[in-house]
């Protein structure tokens, strides 16, 4: 059963494109990644799901019910962490959380304590006085407080230090194991890879691909930067699997997909000063993977 089903969803702000014909679905119980660069339309899609904005055309259902028509009913079971967390500045953290809880039936108030302890959040501070990362934590706690069946996270990790990110991921995994479905939006691929099995990739308002991350890893690109002692002939690296080869004096840059040993063999007998093998950025994946294949 699909918890989220988005069908040809389109949103224009006047003449400005928000999203165009976005379609994908999220299965019950999965952690689904939603990745794309800033401004690609991730937040627009999510905000349309929550009927914070109304789509120009297309439909979306959550729990099998139309998002707009049954918005109130659906939102009872949604926990949402907005990308930009601002709350009532002159309230204390505990007041915001209690205010949030007051909108739901049967909230287990002890969860305020346990969640904020896990996230190391001071309940008695005023929202005003919190750093960006701490405001994110308030967002996380209010999003998970009422034990929602669907958790929608829009760029949740910004401002969190790595330790907190880890704790946050653990929390999400726990909720997921308890049965919650998660839609996780991010522009950082590695972050999504840690949690998600499937991802939808959005670019310029359209879904480029919905893919299993397992498949994606198989034809994953590596980004090579090799600095040689002397200028080398780039033709030596003109073999299958290498793309966007560029040369800067003694340095070669290229993307490679395939058996890593082939590259290592070509390096035999050459004197290197430095070598970097990196995960390509999301942008580079868009450039050299999806655009080529489509």
């Amino acid at each position: 059963m699909n918890v989220i089903e988005i069908n040809q969803l389109t949103k224009y702000y006047g003449k400005h494109r928000g999203i165009e014909n976005v379609s994908f679905s999220v299965e019950k119980g999965e952690i689904f990644g939603f990745i794309g660069p800033n401004g690609a339309g991730k937040s627009t899609t999510i905000r349309a799901l929550l009927s914070l904005i109304y789509p120009t055309s297309g439909t979306a259902t959550i729990f099998g019910k139309d998002c707009i028509k049954y918005g109130k009913e659906i939102r009872k079971d949604i926990g949402y962490l907005p990308s930009e967390v601002f709350y009532y500045e002159n309230m204390k953290v505990i007041e915001v959380l209690k205010y949030s809880a007051s909108f739901y039936d049967d909230v287990d108030m002890s969860r305020i304590q346990t969640l904020s302890q896990t996230m190391d959040l001071d309940l008695n501070k005023r929202i005003d006085d919190l750093s960006y990362g701490n405001k994110k934590k308030v967002g996380i706690v209010q999003g998970l407080l009422h034990e929602p069946k669907l958790i929608i996270l829009d760029e949740p990790t910004g401002g969190l230090d790595p330790l907190m990110q880890q704790k946050f991921f653990d929390l999400i995994r726990i909720e997921n194991e308890k049965g919650a479905t998660v839609l996780f939006s991010s522009h950082i691929l590695t972050e999504v890879q840690k949690l998600c099995r499937r991802v939808a990739i959005i670019k310029d308002g359209s879904i480029v691909k919905v893919e299993n991350l397992q498949d994606m890893r198989q034809h994953n690109y590596k980004k090579f930067t090799i600095e040689f002692e002397n200028v080398v002939d780039p033709a030596a690296f003109g073999f299958e699997g290498i793309t966007s080869l560029t040369q800067e004096e003694t340095t070669l840059h290229f993307l490679y997909k395939g058996d890593i040993n082939k590259v290592i063999n070509r390096l035999q007998g050459k004197v290197l000063r430095n070598m970097l093998v990196e995960e390509p950025t999301l942008e580079e994946i868009f450039m050299h993977y999806y655009q080529k294949e489509n």
Binding site: L50, E84, E89, F103
Partner: peptide, 13 residues
Amino acid sequence: DHSADFLFSRPVK
């Protein structure tokens, strides 16, 4: 105050 996303994502019409 940028709290609209918070408030209107609650189960309220």
